[in-house]
Computed example of a mutant assay.
Amino acid sequence: MHSIAIGFLALFTAASTALADGQTHYVGSEEAERAFWSELYTSGGDTLYCAASFNGMDTNLVASAVYSVRQIRRSLRCATTNQCAIKTPKYLYMVGDLHNLYPSQKEIEEELQNAQFTEIDEAQAKRIGVGDCELKTDFKAFEPADHAKGNAARAILYMHHEYKLPLPGPLEMFQRWHRLDPVDAMERIRNDRIASLQGTRNLFIDDPDAVERLGIP
């Protein structure tokens, strides 16, 4: 746990009920990442962007924030953990939310650092390869493979819905990705596990039609 988390725990625990919903169990990314590997993915699973199987914690993997910490900070108009936690008591809960974390290879995270989700024209796309996985990128932009688009979209929409964060891309694009890659059994199991760990569920996994209702007056 970041040392800052201890100092602000009492502050934002008291304030959290007056803020947006979301989880109030994991305080900061380090605490969430420990639970991510030791409880959520203790038996392994598949990485998000490359669908690469793994067995338990792997030093070549990271817990990747789909709605990135950089994007959260930009949305809150703060620059550091300390500054963000003071300005927005819910901040450490945002970065510690398991619904927003997926396994990813370190090489992928390095390649996609600060990139934003988008749809990239084939003529402009560059492709980066990590093992057997090939990803479509452009300058500070990234389009996931079709098999990952729904999971990514529903994680983004969860963060938007629970914490009132702005969407880092057009709503219509995330709705298309949701339709292209519907909720599957493994995503439902993951949602159940996260609910048992941190006490919140992803609405858009439980009720996929809720995605289509977004943006309707």
Rank of each mutant, 00 (worst) to 15 (best):
K87N: 03
S196T: 10
L101I: 07
F142H: 04
R70C: 02
S53W: 11
A148W: 06
N55W: 05
H178A: 15
S43E: 12
P144R: 07
K126P: 01
V130N: 00
D207K: 14
E122V: 12
N82V: 07
T88S: 09
F36L: 10
H160S: 08
Y163R: 03
Q198S: 12
P217Q: 12
N55M: 09
M159A: 06
I108Q: 04
R74N: 15
R74H: 13
D184T: 12
T137D: 01
A79L: 06
F174R: 05
D46C: 00
C84T: 00
Q105N: 00
G96I: 05
E172Q: 13
N60H: 11
Q71I: 00
H25M: 13
K140C: 00
H178K: 03
T42S: 14
G45S: 05
H160T: 02
I189T: 04
D46L: 12
M186S: 13
S75N: 13
Y163G: 02
G199K: 11
A145P: 04
I6H: 03
A15D: 13
D97S: 08
D146R: 12
Q105C: 02
N100C: 01
P166W: 11
L167W: 14
N114T: 14
R77E: 15
R213D: 14
T24N: 12
M173A: 11
D97A: 13
Y67C: 03
M57F: 13
Q83D: 08
D192C: 00
E30S: 14
Q113W: 09
Y49L: 02
Y93S: 14
A5I: 00
D146N: 10
N82K: 11
E33S: 11
C78I: 01
T88M: 01
T137W: 01
T13L: 05
L11E: 05
P217G: 10
E143S: 08
P182K: 09
A5H: 03
Q198N: 13
L98D: 06
S68I: 03
E187P: 01
G150K: 09
E187W: 05
A20L: 10
I108C: 06
G45P: 06
N202V: 08
